Simulated scan of single mutants.
Amino acid sequence: MRVGLKSLWLLLGLVLLLTWQLDGLAPERRWVASITLVLYAGVLAAALRRARPDGSNMEVRLDYRVAYATETGTARQLAQETCKRLRKAGLTAAPVALNQLSTVPVPERALLLVVSTTGNGDAPKTGIGWDDGEVSMRYAGCPFAVLALGDRNYPRFCAFGLDVEQRLQAAGAKPLFAPVQVSQADPRMIDAWFRQLLPKGD
């Protein structure tokens, strides 16, 4: 995205230069054309920023990246809450959809994953196709933790979240602690996630 913005402003500068070199164009019309072009470039720049997943800067290095895989929005909300608590502790963190993990830098401290399971152990919509084999390898040596969401009434409870955990560990990523498995958004287990992630005193 940063390259796109730079290209946009360079193109704008070139057009402005050409506009002012047109001898047949009255000075007042040159000013109108210039102001119009600057405003249009601002609109395009804003659109590019909004196009970034979760509104985050993809180039920024963070302490924590919180990836979520969600079908109904619960995992995304918990990922956002996780980011909020980390920031309150003085750390930098931002969420990203799990299947967009390849578009962001590896975090400085750890990768955190909030992962739902749907159907018969399936990936939710923002988790489909998340790893082509190369994505998980990018996190070799990176600490990580998984908050797996599911429903104990289904035989493959938290299967997708556990699969994500196994893929990362097989690629050489280092688990901070065992996956925290949550049934039907049980607040006690969600609290256990935050207690392990941010022990008192941190």
Rank of each mutant, 00 (worst) to 15 (best):
residue 108 E to D: 14
residue 46 A to T: 11
residue 32 V to K: 00
residue 67 A to L: 10
residue 62 L to Y: 14
residue 89 A to W: 07
residue 94 A to H: 12
residue 36 T to S: 04
residue 132 D to A: 12
residue 136 S to G: 08
residue 139 Y to V: 06
residue 117 T to Y: 08
residue 49 R to H: 06
residue 124 P to S: 04
residue 69 A to E: 12
residue 101 L to Q: 05
residue 146 V to Y: 12
residue 115 V to M: 00
residue 121 G to Y: 13
residue 60 V to T: 14
residue 72 T to E: 15
residue 158 C to W: 03
residue 40 Y to H: 02
residue 104 V to A: 05
residue 105 P to S: 14
residue 93 A to V: 08
residue 63 D to S: 13
residue 117 T to F: 09
residue 60 V to W: 10
residue 53 P to H: 14
residue 111 L to N: 09
residue 137 M to Y: 07
residue 65 R to M: 10
residue 28 E to W: 11
residue 34 S to C: 05
residue 31 W to A: 12
residue 144 F to A: 05
residue 160 F to C: 01
residue 157 F to E: 05
residue 112 L to V: 11
residue 92 T to R: 13
residue 95 P to K: 01
residue 149 L to Y: 05
residue 76 R to K: 15
residue 33 A to C: 07
residue 59 E to S: 11
residue 157 F to P: 05
residue 86 L to W: 10
residue 31 W to P: 03
residue 47 A to F: 03
residue 121 G to L: 12
residue 32 V to Q: 13
residue 149 L to E: 03
residue 31 W to S: 01
residue 128 I to D: 13
residue 117 T to R: 02
residue 127 G to R: 11
residue 143 P to I: 04
residue 76 R to T: 03
residue 37 L to N: 04
residue 34 S to K: 00
residue 101 L to I: 11
residue 81 E to N: 13
residue 87 R to Y: 07
residue 66 V to E: 11
residue 155 P to S: 01
residue 46 A to L: 15
residue 130 W to T: 03
residue 125 K to A: 12
residue 38 V to K: 05
residue 68 Y to P: 11
residue 151 D to C: 05
residue 153 N to L: 13
residue 37 L to Y: 15
residue 132 D to Y: 07
residue 56 S to W: 09
residue 82 T to V: 14
residue 44 L to E: 06
residue 118 T to C: 05
residue 80 Q to V: 14
residue 135 V to F: 14
residue 131 D to E: 09
residue 102 S to V: 04
residue 119 G to P: 14
residue 89 A to I: 02
residue 81 E to Y: 06
residue 46 A to G: 10
residue 64 Y to N: 13
residue 114 V to I: 08
residue 156 R to I: 03
residue 77 Q to H: 10
residue 74 T to K: 14
residue 76 R to V: 08
residue 37 L to G: 06
residue 63 D to H: 10
residue 60 V to G: 02
residue 116 S to M: 03
residue 75 A to C: 14
residue 96 V to F: 04
residue 39 L to G: 14
residue 98 L to V: 01
residue 58 M to D: 07
residue 148 A to C: 01
residue 53 P to N: 04
residue 41 A to G: 10
residue 42 G to R: 01
residue 134 E to P: 00
residue 144 F to P: 00
residue 78 L to R: 08
residue 154 Y to W: 09
residue 38 V to M: 07
residue 76 R to L: 07
residue 138 R to Y: 04
residue 157 F to L: 00
residue 125 K to I: 08
residue 32 V to F: 02
residue 117 T to K: 06
residue 32 V to R: 09
residue 46 A to I: 01
residue 157 F to D: 02
residue 129 G to P: 03
residue 46 A to W: 08
residue 122 D to G: 02
residue 115 V to Y: 06
residue 28 E to G: 03
residue 109 R to F: 05
residue 156 R to Y: 15
residue 128 I to A: 08
residue 115 V to N: 00
residue 29 R to T: 08
residue 67 A to P: 12
residue 30 R to S: 02
residue 90 G to E: 08
residue 143 P to L: 11
residue 34 S to T: 12
residue 128 I to T: 13
residue 88 K to D: 10
residue 31 W to Y: 07
residue 58 M to F: 11
residue 87 R to I: 06
residue 92 T to F: 03
residue 147 L to R: 10
residue 133 G to N: 07
residue 86 L to K: 06
residue 140 A to Y: 05
residue 50 R to N: 03
residue 77 Q to A: 10
